[in-house]
């Protein structure tokens, strides 16, 4: 998957959890909680959607690496490249 594909998939899962967000206005460096208004339950739901989509285990200690779309894309690409599938 290219970074563009990864970003699109991430935004799809993000806006499914928080449909009040407009996909077109989400910035790459927007912080999930501070800028996009996700609460901790939203965040867990997002992690679970990503887990389902990519088959990746995402341990709690890695959550800060999903703090913004840009960080998340980097993280997901790294994990997928490492063949780190569940």
């Amino acid at each position: 998957m290219t970074p563009t594909d990864l970003r699109a998939a991430f935004i799809t899962d993000l806006t499914a959890v928080a449909p009040d967000l407009d996909a077109a206005t989400i910035g790459d460096d927007d912080h999930m909680q501070t800028d996009l208004g996700l609460d901790s339950m939203d965040f867990l739901n997002l992690v679970s959607a990503l887990h389902k989509r990519f088959g990746l285990p995402i341990p709690e200690t890695d959550y800060p690496r999903l703090a913004t779309p840009a960080k998340a894309v980097t993280y997901l690409a790294e994990m997928l490249a490492a063949g780190n599938r569940a």
Binding site: A18, P19, L21
Partner: peptide, 19 residues
Amino acid sequence: ERELRGHARKRLGPAVSPR
């Protein structure tokens, strides 16, 4: 379904809205 959840979140905020 998504539109309704989005509608509720905008009015109520995430803590109170239906998941």
